[in-house]
Write a protein that binds this DNA or RNA. Sequence first.
DNA 1: TATTATGATGCAAATATATGCAAACTTTTT
DNA 2: AAAAAGTTTGCATATATTTGCATCATAATA
Lengths: 272, 272
Amino acid sequence: MQTFCFVAYIFLHYIANIFSEPTMMKEERQRMIIAKLNRDQRINLVELSQLLEVSYDSIRRDVIELEDKGLLKKVHGGAVANSYLPFKTTQGLGIANQEIIQLTRKAQKLFENARIVLMDGGTTNFHIAEQLPKNLDITVITNNLPLAMVLNEHPKIETILLGGTYYKRYQITLSNEIMRQLDHLQADLYLMGFNGVHPEHGITIRHYEESLLKQKMIKAARRVAVCAVEEKINTVETYKVCGWNDIDVLITSLKPTDPELALFRREGLEIW
Amino acid sequence: MQTFCFVAYIFLHYIANIFSEPTMMKEERQRMIIAKLNRDQRINLVELSQLLEVSYDSIRRDVIELEDKGLLKKVHGGAVANSYLPFKTTQGLGIANQEIIQLTRKAQKLFENARIVLMDGGTTNFHIAEQLPKNLDITVITNNLPLAMVLNEHPKIETILLGGTYYKRYQITLSNEIMRQLDHLQADLYLMGFNGVHPEHGITIRHYEESLLKQKMIKAARRVAVCAVEEKINTVETYKVCGWNDIDVLITSLKPTDPELALFRREGLEIW
DNA sequence: TATTATGATGCAAATATATGCAAACTTTTT
DNA sequence: AAAAAGTTTGCATATATTTGCATCATAATA
């Protein structure tokens, strides 16, 4: 009986959808808004409400939500794309995009109770920074030049750049000075960049000097998180940074319950 | 019926869009103003209001807002590029180019006997760095992020970045740390960025903290040079960095014998 | 000094935003 | 299956922003 009801229900909906205009769901609308924004660089709320056939208010509320997620910039009368930087921004990433968006979205939760955040090298960190909500009010300490520059677009974020020899290949700085400065520092969160992440071998990286810096940063932060794109999962690189005891949160684009992450589950490690 | 309405609706919109210009949003106009400014180096408000089809007042208000953001400098009747904000590479500069090319070419002579060079903020410095010979083998010490990044293209140049609070507006770092580090440093050359250069008032700049840093850098270098684009000659800004006693070389795009430079000639100052 | 071009300021109309509320719809709980 | 709790939506209202114009002040130029 229940099965019948369920089928009938689906069927009726199906029929209904043929005859009535399909009512669009909020997420669907928001995806279309972003898509249009990426095409046109700007959108107009009145135009959109007509196009998507919902009230001006709903569109406005959608745009507010999207702005909170850092996906666009709201302006009087509409919205504009939120970044025109000379680097490869997330918008320019094409298809790989989807994974990054998922990752950055999850990562935003990390910043909720943080005031001082350490972020070091790597593209993942760059993208997370780029996608932070525009009105976030924190201090970011970094040795990653592109990351510092991308935060130009976030007026409330105070950026502190760690000085030293500039490594062109990774676009980061390294120095003994930094090591000393980190002794006097207590951050709420350290978002660590890395090259390899493996259930047994922990976090690894290609560059020795950098591994030392990362170990120092771990000590300087109350909470340590790593964000891994799928291709890095289960890989190992030359130098070990730390094992899983030092990591508090592992974020991937997969569902936390995904079997691929089974080996990572352990006491004291949150998987998002 | 509903389908018909929908089609008619879309059709009407299509027609409407042909005949009515979509009204431009404030942000969009401002982006166009900046874009035009980057092409022409100077804009005229009347011209702009005709081009963008809004009232003179709106353009004026836009320009005021942009000036508040530090993106341009308002002058009587129009606005000029804020040449203290490096965004574009020389390739993108268009016609104003010619002057920069002249200047950078002369500036290269400075580097001939140098091994350690200090360079700070400003577009002129950025362009000089960009145009340096690819095989030049020196160490550049800077607090200018775009400058550090543009040196990615120069494999033999070692870059040291001075750390500290990152000032988004000027894309430089400033800190007490830097001041201390400069005590232990002896550079061969300091290529100073600035806002105003004047025969009587010397070198001036808009930002107080930066003037202190520059004074420190002067002490840390054996030789001090300034490169002035024509529009800066004879201008004065808020904070004085130094007089002419502290400067060894003045480089402009003009001929050293140009009458416009007559007042600058004095004992101990080379003019190139 | 007179003349003209540009700048600043206040105002009203048009447009956009924020907020509370009730109806419609979903999801969860009972 | 029904009730309760929570979302989402559209509308009404009060508030805020943007815009063009009129007016007066100020700077540049002859």
